[in-house]
Design a protein around this nucleic acid. Sequence first.
DNA 1: CTGAAAGCGCTTACAG
DNA 2: CTGAAAGCGCTTACAG
Lengths: 360, 360
Amino acid sequence: MSTNAGNDGKSPRKPITARELARLMGVSQSAVSRAFTPGTSISAELRERILRAAEEFDYQPNAIASMLSTRRSNIAGIVVSEMQNPFYPSLIEKLSRELQRVGLQSLMFNITRGSNIEEQLVALRKYNVDAVVVISATVLSGASLRWATEGRAAVLVNRTIPDQTLTSVSCDNIEGARAIADHFHAIGRRNVAFVGGLPHTSTNLERQNAFITRVAELGMTLTHAISGGEYSYEAGYKAGMEIGAAERTDAAFFANDILAIGGFDALKDGLGLRVPEDIAIAGFDDVAMTRWPRYSLTTFRQPVDAIVAKTVALIMEQLASKAYTPTQNPLSGELLVRHSTLGAQALEQIEASGQTPASR
Amino acid sequence: MSTNAGNDGKSPRKPITARELARLMGVSQSAVSRAFTPGTSISAELRERILRAAEEFDYQPNAIASMLSTRRSNIAGIVVSEMQNPFYPSLIEKLSRELQRVGLQSLMFNITRGSNIEEQLVALRKYNVDAVVVISATVLSGASLRWATEGRAAVLVNRTIPDQTLTSVSCDNIEGARAIADHFHAIGRRNVAFVGGLPHTSTNLERQNAFITRVAELGMTLTHAISGGEYSYEAGYKAGMEIGAAERTDAAFFANDILAIGGFDALKDGLGLRVPEDIAIAGFDDVAMTRWPRYSLTTFRQPVDAIVAKTVALIMEQLASKAYTPTQNPLSGELLVRHSTLGAQALEQIEASGQTPASR
DNA sequence: CTGAAAGCGCTTACAG
DNA sequence: CTGAAAGCGCTTACAG
């Protein structure tokens, strides 16, 4: 790091190149390049000398040039859309951190709904990203996804495409939704409701189908199956008002935590019901808000760290091999039982007997 | 978009280059390049012909090569750190959208606290980003920021460095904190508390100083000045318990909404106080949660759209001129009075008389 | 281990 | 308006 007196913003000073550094040192430009590339044939001594000089002259290899030579950009494109759900920012942050660790910088591609989506995806190809991670339940068709990711490592996170021609990693939604249904049954509830989020997304469909199926298997009654239309507090609130108005439902599963929290407020504050005595409420994801004492929401925790780790591992694998077979990777989560489905006393009993998931 | 039968993931097929397309068409490679560069001298007819052929052969200019030639990456690095605060994901999303609109793709750099920060910043230089936007209250020193942004357009969002040698755009924290103090005074409160977040950050310091100063000017008593240590629900909750225990305070200003919501829950649920009758609560930012009926939190709205627009405008300006003078750009926000400081009746009265900010 | 040279795929003066 | 050619700053066979 060198100071640069007189630089008032934009650089008047061009960074030094490998060739210039080489000339300065009386070595070849190839040597400079090799000094910065691990595993190349260069004596430890020369490398040392070059790295020291580089430090002194503030030289750094130009990544753009090296991308052009190697046809490797070391960039991962992360395709995201709606970030309303607090689950995603934290997932993205962890993912980008892990990618950075294996040498991939994250280029974010924000897909705006509505506008021409394919046009937005061309950037992925233009920038020659080595890998793409699609974290987005949005309206991208399987065809455009295949086109955009063609020739590069690609993983879909928390979404799948029907023909499964692309690798995906996700929370096991079926396991989760069944666990919630089982839990409702175990605490004696028999009239249950389901509230969905963004229709036509795989997360939503899987949670809905698995829940409804399990409810039937257990002989419980499905009082409502409402589509919120989106994963939002407002949609959850509205659905909560609808469910509470009918007075029969004693447990409600919302397809994600934000919906559930909206529903919670509607049922408790909006309608004056007691949670969980009158109605038990469960969500999905385990976002930070669920742990607020006010909510203490029972939810199914998505295994975020495992999702991130698996995603990165699959990317590296694909990057290393020329041909691979797409795989689907549902990862196990964990049911977290909290106050919104169990009163404090019941929770304590269960915890004391050590037979249930922690409530943290 | 062409199908590519037999591609099972990684491409066996190299994308076509400008030279190949040129040969195919019997034109020069320069012509192909010009066809894709607006404002270059090429006949409309030739351009048309080339663009059609490009479509047919699925040709797209290689952005990496063009970066090397033009020494323009068309990439903006966005330096972010903690995304706990829901204010930031939405800011980042909008920013990246707007940057995309002016032709800059966003490369996200996640700075992890603790680990070597300068090392993390070298990527900004290696990737030759044209612009950098630092959205982060984190521990980056002015010196490392100057080094990392040297020679490129740079804007700090919601943070400043002491010597003001870098351009910054932020919400006018002083205006906001004063407005809150004035509002507390106007509704008859006289014993007020302040709760801060991340110490040593400019947002926190400005809000704190302006609030405390204004409180003194108005002759109110400052009962507490607590540092939460971080911008989190938990810190707010803890501070709320502390403030409520003393029984004197009738209004509390939390340096951001997340803190305020934690404080709200502590004061209302934890201690059984009435909000706003016993204690009025105000936050800062206007995140979505503040509009939840449960909270209806009075807050100072950051002008997010204006912040994004100004940031992008400044970036473009810097990109266009060789030398520029760093400027500080505090942008006006808006006080949103909601139920956490005014009872429903008072709110209605005020709204009817049309003399106050909307509560939306 | 080291260097000279070709090449990655564009852009852009320079001629015509 | 169009083309031939140099050059952006690296990497990497190829010789030695």
